[in-house]
Design a protein around this nucleic acid. Structure first.
Lengths: 342, 342
DNA sequence: GTGAAAGCGCTAACAA
DNA sequence: TTGTTAGCGCTTTCAC
């Protein structure tokens, strides 16, 4: 069966016929090459208007190898699926990426890599030249994804330092500096009996935050800091605080490695009748939504996620332009957001 | 300059040469047509392996018109840019869409439509056949986006009922049923002096929630409900609650049209020395992260966002398959999530 | 400045 | 079952 004429989309040739010129000329006009006589430009543009011509991206890509798309790969731990997206962190990264890309008339395609097969699919997506490169957001340690992309020679950059040493460009936060900010603030308030609620030991970022805090405290003349472990949830923070209150009853300053745990700690403190910040000063990390909602509002460490995402995207562009660029990394500085809890 | 052989990517022809067959046969093997002799299949697969062949998506798309991509268009109010993505709602929708798509080996491309030109770009993105259709998530009233897509005859579905009447398929929540759930819960607790903190009057969803609440209360024999207005922020909820406490000092039940306002109300109530839920029962709407973090934990109305997003995606597929399908809508039922505040 | 023609890599008739 | 061939819509030399 022949295709109905109305169904067929308008092509360069159609425009050329209407304008009485060749395909090539129309192509030049569409691509704004300035080697076309302006009278012709005008009539071609008219023809484009009347025909309602829209260029076909696939045909273009086929010849010039540019897709105008990059892959944004979210790599959660296996099977975590949709949960990855519920994290506001993901939204902030996405915002930064989109903001940067839109100025270059490009768009990210979202891939979820939460299983071996999904990881392979993600790689193959880029290799079919659906995308010019990939932004990898890996939330868990030992993620095989970065290695996969690097080995395949596909342009890619990573959010956060790779846990295994992989030659790939990345952006990261200076976690140690962040917790040092918290340490200094606590010390300057006059806190002396200090504890920290650390994150999971298998997360590099959590360890950096812990190490940075301890080191900064030492520099402030407070060599001993009590350490409790949580898993980045509010409940774990609450429990850790309860334990801390037992082991260190006269505690007067706490740094939680993320806001959620700080919120949990806040609850334990309230239940114990300790006032924040008067009895105990408390600092979180992340500047998350709940940290802004809490009472007292949480003093916390903020990271420039959108900015980091934008930088990461620009690094990806560099790599696409110069394929054998050697890996680079950019470390961003966090800020102390003084609110009410410390 | 001739292109270096190593740079050129492996094509069907290369595989064909190695396997000693024709391009067409290789194509058949790649596309798993079962009309190929299994010995040949084997040797072709081997050749694919040794050559490292990866099919070129653009070339495929050019002939079969399928891109394996759909556009996910987030339409914030003008200039709201990245802020749209910070909303966890966006993440949940994305999660639902991705989960549905991945089973069909497809992926969403993210577009932000927060200005007239961005809206046009979004439309043109789909029309260049970069995507087979579009999922429109519009957060504000009077958004011109749905109309734009419908007029262009591009397959599209909408999250939430269009504020202006546009012939487009959509999914939505039964907001009235949601607030009726809240009303019933309040009434059954024995609350009699009841108020609601409504959302902005120009948001259809906010109005439905208000109307549904009033109606359900009437049915419960409580014809009068005090109404305060907020703008969906915690601060506005706090202020509204303060006002309510003045105009209706013996208030014993409050329904806030979203969780953030409920959180604000919770603060005002605590400041006023009212215990929740004993003195005043409080219900929110959305089941957001802060609602789970608060103390007392917020009783709220939850909506099946991921499910709605998945359904929306499947409706888009129907529309792509059958272009002149008439618009359909599917309304989802919310649930009462009883926690501690009511 | 403009047109003719040769592909980009693939699929799908149609032949064989 | 397999190969030949004609495009899909575009860009880009290369002549004119």
């Amino acid at each position: 069966m022949k295709q109905a004429a109305t169904r067929r989309s308008v092509t360069l040739q159609d425009v050329a016929d209407v304008a009485g010129v060749s395909r090539a000329t129309v192509s030049r006009v569409v691509n704004e090459k300035d080697t076309v006589h302006e009278d012709i430009v005008r009539s071609v543009k008219e023809a484009i208007e009347t025909t309602g011509y829209v260029p076909n991206a696939a045909a273009r890509t086929l010849v010039n190898r540019r897709t105008g798309t990059i892959a944004l790969v979210m790599s959660g731990s296996d099977g975590s699926a949709a949960q990855v997206f519920a994290d506001p962190f993901f939204g902030r990264i996405t915002g930064g990426v989109v903001t940067y890309l839109r100025e270059r008339a490009m768009h990210p395609t979202l891939l979820l890599a939460d299983s071996d097969s999904a990881r392979r699919d993600a790689l193959s997506f880029v290799r079919r030249s659906n995308a010019e490169g990939a932004i990898l957001v890996s939330t868990h340690a030992g993620d095989p994804l970065p290695r996969l992309f690097v080995d395949a020679g596909v342009p890619a950059v990573l959010f956060a330092r790779p846990s295994d040493p992989v030659p790939i460009s990345f952006v990261d936060l200076d976690h140690e500096a962040g917790s040092a900010l918290a340490a200094n603030q606590l010390a300057e308030r006059g806190c002396r009996r200090i504890a920290t609620i650390a994150g999971p030991a298998d997360l590099p970022a959590a360890n950096s935050r812990l190490a940075g805090f301890q080191r900064a405290m030492e520099r402030k003349g407070i060599p001993y800091v009590e350490v409790a472990r949580g898993n980045f949830t509010a409940d774990s923070g609450e429990q850790a605080m309860i334990d801390l209150l037992t082991t260190m009853p006269d505690i007067d300053g706490v740094f939680a490695a993320n806001d959620l745990m700080a919120i949990g700690a806040l609850r334990a403190l309230r239940d114990a009748g300790r006032s924040v910040p008067d009895d105990v000063a408390l600092i979180g990390f992340d500047d998350s939504e709940p940290s802004r909602m809490s009472r007292p509002r949480l003093t916390t460490i903020s990271q420039p996620v959108e900015e980091m995402a934008a930088k990461m995207t620009s690094m990806l562009f560099d790599q696409i332009a110069t394929p054998d660029l050697s890996p680079a990394s950019v470390i961003f500085q966090p800020e102390l957001l003084r609110r009410e809890s410390a």
